[in-house]
Design a binder for these strands. Sequence first.
RNA 1: GGUCCUGUGGCCGAGUGGCUAGGCUCAGCUCUGCAAAAGCUGCUACAGCGGUUCGAAUCCGCUCGGGACCUCCA
Length: 492
Amino acid sequence: MQNQLVIYNTLTRTKEKFEPLNKGLVGLYVCGPTVYSDVHLGNCRTFISFDLIYRYLLLLGFKVRYVRNITDAGHLEGDRDEGEDKFAKKAKLEQLEPMEIVQKYTLGFHDVMREFNNLPPSIEPTATGHICEQIEMVKKIISNGYAYEVNGTVYFDVEKYNKEFPYGQLTNRQLEDLIANTRELSGQDEKHGRLDFALWIKAKPEQIMRWPSPWGWGFPGWHIECSAMSSKYLGDTFDIHGGGMDLQATHHTNEIAQSQACNHKAPVKYWMHTNMLTVNGVRMSKTAGNGFLPGELFTGNHPLLEKGYSPMAVRFFMMQTHYRSTLDFSNDALQASEKGYARLAAAVKTAENLKTSATSTSNIQELEKNCFDAMNDDFNAPILVSHLFEGARIINSVNDGKETISEADLVLLKKLMHDFVFDVLGLKSEISNTSSDNALQGVMEIILEIRKEIKSKKDFAASDKLRDNLNKINITIKDTKDGAVWSLTAGE
RNA sequence: GGUCCUGUGGCCGAGUGGCUAGGCUCAGCUCUGCAAAAGCUGCUACAGCGGUUCGAAUCCGCUCGGGACCUCCA
């Protein structure tokens, strides 16, 4: 383990030393998507942020069990436990079975995650696959006295819970304030308290997605699935629970309450929340209608986009902002990232063929330390990136013969660039001249040879035309002092 | 209304009480047949007003602006 990792814990609102409950092991749970529609870029940001966190924990040598759920049932519109089921509504809209909706958007989600080069979680449990566990948990909460049943629906008794535990601790709020901001219960409301929320919900007669329970046919409330699945796979108390900041006030607050009420233990040691992606300063969300779909971004097929951006350019764009800061989305910012990333990636490639000398003009060990220090400080990727550009500068300077590097330092430099650029930031090269197409390799060698002959005859008009035309089909030729080289750039 | 976050140079974004991340853009230079790439140099900063301090963009107060959560959303 390189030095000491520090994590900002939402629970205490401070940075704390990271000490896993079990030495060398990390239990990580992240709230996954509700698969009733396409994931937009804001959703992706959260998963990319936690992918970075997961990857860095792995680099540090931890054995990480990363659990990220798929919500495929029980998520109502509106958290008043009275809205329409999201899946049922969408199913009606698309004239499909609810589980067809689930399947369709789960597959889409996985495709997008793969495009962004996110590592798959260790376990990806679904709510519908854990109905029994959720029912058992609800039963236990009732027998522990923190929940009650009314007409087939089970509610969590927030006010009773709050007498023993600080219900609003995750958002630093007092119960009285929370109650003051909640509307009055109507006469027909089944809840005892204004803040009470459903653990189990009675199904309406027409509902397809329903299961038998001690309280009749119904389906689980949204919050209970995460509590049930996280404790099943990670234990009653585990290391890190993450999610978007928008889940903090309601979903995570209720998760803590449920788990505590059920298991008599605080479920999580470190709560981590990622900030939102904004468009023109306003949060990207499904309901605001300002969401970008990843596909639109890659193709540039969106009114707000001037062109398409590759998945890695977008990922790099996100890596240049800390996960707890909002990130504003714009063409200019995206273009800057695209170019910056191309330069960084090119340097990593250049490092493969550097000549070594007896001594180094740069301190590579210090550079390595700086990289670890940056990530150890609550996963500060933007600082890491700045150090990686220092690495790129060194590589390019050595390549130009302006600086030197020793054999040992080059090995270290190559390793750290590889570790941090590919393994931690999760980027992958999009430029290539090592095309698997042998025919193309051969053709390019012939073309460069012919162009060399043309150039030696000083027919620059012809050689430039060749270069320009190749450029149009995404083949770039550069004339270096050691001769011409070519590379294939990712097409749009 | 309540609970918070935030306002950095042309743009995006880090950051610590004093030593001014980084990327992109722009200008100049080196290299080059020209490009490209690369390197070097330069250019505009810390919303405003007070206060604490030897010293603050960084701490405190106020003003103005932006945003989030409290209602589903990663």
